[in-house]
Design a protein around this nucleic acid. Structure first.
Lengths: 225, 225, 225, 225
DNA sequence: CATGAATGAGTATTCATTCAT
DNA sequence: TATGAATGAATACTCATTCAT
């Protein structure tokens, strides 16, 4: 089971990841920016991006309304930063996995486990990622797309590598497979988040899904021959 | 290829389908309600649900702002009705397919083709279905969920039937598979809509996906025996 | 007890009183205009002029929305016509009373009884007259004022006549008295309408008020001299 | 003549009177809430409650539209607060008068002078109190009624006290008298406000009315004996 | 850095009125 | 006369953002 779950959910300050919008802070507050992001996850999950009020996020974070604008350009930027932060962490984890010297099947299994495992226990985050991100077509196209493409490429590269190694059927389209895999994971996470979000649900789903998919992708050693 | 594509996208007036909100009108306009729905698809796809202005929809439909409120309770109701209308048509098609006396694999293949084929050539509708529907968590939970559950159950029942018939592996979870399948289709449609929406892209994707998935789900006749 | 109560409340067609807005009607409907006016009294009383919807009045009158505009210029005109109609009837009754060859005290007593008696049993009308009429400052100033002045003058003339006849004190200002008398009657009617509107309440109030006021206005025959 | 006239019309900030809706503000503006209320009096008097635009009130008060909603729940609340504020001041003045150790006649005279004197010179306020308050039946019944009942009870108690002291006739109904008295004062103020609002008009009217009414209520010491 | 009072642009919705039938 | 579907002007209210303190 992935142990970087908590870091993904934002416990670690991870100052090196502050690529956008963050301003240098003195040591006064531990990390006000992170506090705001976590408050935003809660509020976005509960109300949705558009219905969420900046003042609510501020209140949930225990800061004044205006303070949010010291750390983020505007409300959009809060959502984008949220996605950006968490997605970068996921990407880093996926890349690390992809770089391992493992069998392709093992890698894909780990990737599936990783992604669903990250959300397991973080229903709010899952809801934000699966639902809220689509709330602004503009945000989706403008900011999410690039990272998303990176994500798909990591998966696709693992598939392609597997094909070169002879472990995966040649007639499979790597990028299409990546799209379908992401969709399947997203769909499972969505129904899990909107439904009961039962503990262990995602972990179990990850395992079953991996088995089925990999069986479909595996190159058959001349069946019946 | 499904030939009811156009009816799904709303070409046919289909007055008998006026289940919700519609009021009986005199024969003045052929079908003003349908005109509004189609205008809404365009505007929602271009701007997103929240950024879409009711007045824009009215203008695109060639009616006065107030007229929209003769056919729909409010802006939310337009989106919900849209989903409701189109989803019911998809469901009917899926059920018909599921009821056929075909092999399970054939049925699943047809279902995948049906769903992606319906969106092929209707980029706007695809974008509304894959993106806009998630714009309001409330709408999603309240209205979309029930129909969505019906959808999942149709797929799951086909899978379960295949298991009973010995065509599909026993260790597969029908409902989870349905969720993953829907997610994969949704993900493919989303990336297609947000990307180039190249002609034939969905149709091709449907075929490839079907092949891969079904291979993974198929019961192996004692490999190597 | 006044016996023209019912005519005041609009039972009689009173075609001669149709001074404003009314259009000649064929004998088709008994009196659609009157039906609309009575419906308006009900709706105005229940909702107030501004909150009252034209469509509600139409529905209460059993006609189509558009029909109202065949009999009245607009919504304002309905309220104005209402006041005009009823006020003219009251004025006619008051004038008749004032012209009688009675003692001044008797006349004033009758006037008080007449006015409150007219409203007794017509709570809706009472509420419209005491409350709704003031809902539009413009209406009040523009339309109600002239009739209202006529009303005050009838009262004032009776008072002045009483002074000339030596029945009423010389130091009383007739017009001020008329204003106060109307105010008192209006205030009593208002509290009656907004309160329980208990049967007989107005009639009883009329008698008591008359006694008190007249005692105050009566010329004392050299008390103690 | 009452010297608290100006305080009634709102000249004094009277921060202690901020019973409803007001939020504590920093010392920026002297009293923004009061400024809004006074602007509202002007606009309501000129246009009537319904025709008055919130933006007009804001402009007249020299604040932004939104600022009004920092001090009042909505437009209704502005009118209600207006009435509430001013009525409480009147009630306090009346109660003080009623509590004095004076003869009943003197008290009633003072009460009449007080009430009309308060409006003298404040035509706008007079118009709001006599006209606008009745513009919303709901407001009238819900908010004004309780304070109004208190008002009537103060008057009625003075009358009843006079009866016990033998100064006022036994056959007079205290509460009815209060209703009539209020109505008379209201009627006089209304006609004054809608008419020329000539200076001194109300003061003069107060004196004459007091004389007449009190004469009618006074217990006669065995006339002719 | 932090605050939160003040701002004012922006829009869904209503409903009086019209007019083709 | 009568209808009622269609119109579209008109406005209270919200809330992201700013900036004086």
């Amino acid at each position: 089971m992935p142990d970087n779950e908590s870091s993904f959910s934002g416990t670690a300050p991870a100052p090196e990841a502050r690529g956008r919008g963050g301003k240098p802070k003195r040591g006064t507050a531990p990390d006000k920016r992170e506090r705001i992001l976590r408050a935003a996850i809660k509020v976005f999950a509960r109300k949705g991006f558009f219905a969420a009020r900046v003042s609510e996020i501020a209140k949930a974070a225990g800061v004044a309304d205006g303070t949010i604008y010291l750390y983020f350009k505007n409300k959009d930027d809060v959502l984008v930063s949220l996605f950006d932060d968490r997605m970068r962490k996921l990407l880093a984890a996926l890349r690390e996995e992809a770089a391992r010297d493992d069998a392709t099947e093992r890698k894909l299994t780990r990737i599936i486990e990783l992604q669903l495992g990250l959300l397991e226990g973080h229903r709010d985050l899952a809801e934000v990622i699966t639902v809220n991100l689509r709330q602004s077509t503009r945000l989706l196209k403008q900011y999410a797309a690039p990272l998303f493409v990176e994500y798909l490429e990591v998966i696709a590269s693992v598939v392609a590598e597997g094909q070169r190694a002879g472990a995966i059927r040649e007639d499979i389209h790597p990028l299409l497979t990546a799209r379908a895999l992401w969709g399947a994971l997203d769909g499972i996470a969505l129904t899990w988040a909107l439904g009961g979000a039962e503990p262990g649900g995602l972990t179990r789903a990850a395992r079953e899904l991996a088995t089925t998919l990999l069986d479909g992708m595996r190159r058959r050693p001349a069946v019946g021959a």
